[in-house]
Nucleic acid binder design. Structure first.
Lengths: 211, 211
DNA sequence: ATAGTTTTACTGAACGATCGGTAAGTAGCG
DNA sequence: CGCTACTTACCGATCGTTCAGTAAAACTAT
């Protein structure tokens, strides 16, 4: 009874249409790994615990991934891919700087909500290994592109100039990134409302509208 | 040569005025421990690494503290004590709700900058152990008191009512707490300026002042 | 002044537990 | 049979922690 039955574990398994036994697919393993990493922290999550959550053995996990760091790498790739994808969309490239900034911020909230556990993992990195440092570098590159949008919006006269654009960008992302620490999908606050509130508070502040 | 000389380690030592040898004082050990916890994460920081940073042996650390968790407990106590102290000051108790809110937010920035590594550690907790869960509960209690101030300011008509106060409080703290991830004391941005910018952006938003 | 005692503050070696990862064998399917 | 998807058993390394012994300073008695 110390081990769950080897089949029928919460839909994590799916046939692969090929020879051999029914298998976990990689994305199911990844989902559970990312969940555990966020619950306990990457370092504090053992491969044994992952196996337990999957209802299988430790070494079975190694059949699907080459190791613990591989799980981290795959998860971070998904989060970074989502964020970087925003910057390639037309709304991020065309139009006035403030509109492009609003589009990117709204997109960041959307990716964050859509891939919540994956982005959460990304935002908690410390940079201990090469994989983590590489992910942090890509994240900084994304932040830098947004910072340039803030600069352009300021040059257009859209934004206040009494606070430097680096501070503005950091406070903006501080606000947006904090969403991973408290937003629960499926609650009364829909992702679209959340994005509206964030953009509105960011641009207009806490005071009641003067209009 | 594998071990540093037993004295003169970077001013971490100080006499204690009592019998026996010159010792590290607890606060020096704690400072180095908190720095390492923030660099690598609590779980990824080994007692061996702490000893190395202190220029002493692993077991020497156990003379000063009862264990790794004890270091965490002492560090979190300092961070939480600072934050909770704000709420006991006159500026947080007397006056209009919005002024009290501004005072508390400004105080939170001040504590955060003053005890930067300690608050950083607090903000990165995952709640794996009883000590961490207890610290998280105290942090939530602090947040809750600020949330009540937001409620009162809204009731006074000072703040916008199209976003609920829970979301406002979370976005506020998201912005403020992010400071630990990028603010470097001793730079061109002084703590007082930082607090001004944070309060100003939070209440008035990113747009240029209409006045 | 100095020898002896006490207390403090360590050192170095080792402990059991747990870590990430591997080797070898096998059950279930086409 | 051939291939997939595991299983059990185990490895060396590292983890937090403990323990017996000791060097160095302060205190005390002479």
């Amino acid at each position: 009874m110390k081990q769950a039955a080897s089949a029928d574990v919460a839909g994590a398994r799916g046939g692969n249409g090929r020879n051999g036994r029914a298998a976990y697919d990689l994305s199911a393993v990844l989902d559970i790994a990312v969940g555990a990493f966020n619950d306990y922290g990457y370092d504090a999550t053992s491969m044994g615990l992952l196996a337990e959550r999957l209802g299988t053995s430790k070494s079975a996990v190694y059949y699907h991934v080459s190791g613990k760091e591989d799980l981290l790498r795959l998860a971070l790739e998904r989060a970074l891919g989502g964020l970087e994808g925003i910057l390639t969309l037309p709304g991020a490239i065309e139009g006035a700087a403030e509109d492009r900034l609003r589009f990117v911020l709204r997109g960041a909230v959307a990716v964050l909500v859509d891939d919540l556990p994956y982005v959460t993992l990304l935002l908690r990195l410390r940079g201990n290994t090469e994989i983590e440092r590489s992910a942090l570098a890509r994240r900084r590159a994304f932040d830098h592109e947004v910072s340039q949008l803030v600069d352009r919006a300021r040059a257009d006269g859209s934004l206040r100039t009494d606070v430097d654009s680096g501070t503005i960008t950091r406070l903006l992302f501080g606000m947006i990134n904090s969403i991973v620490e408290w937003y629960k999908p499926g609650g009364t606050l829909t992702p679209a409302q959340l994005a509206d509130h964030v953009i509105s508070v960011a641009f207009d502040g806490l005071h009641r509208p003067t209009a």
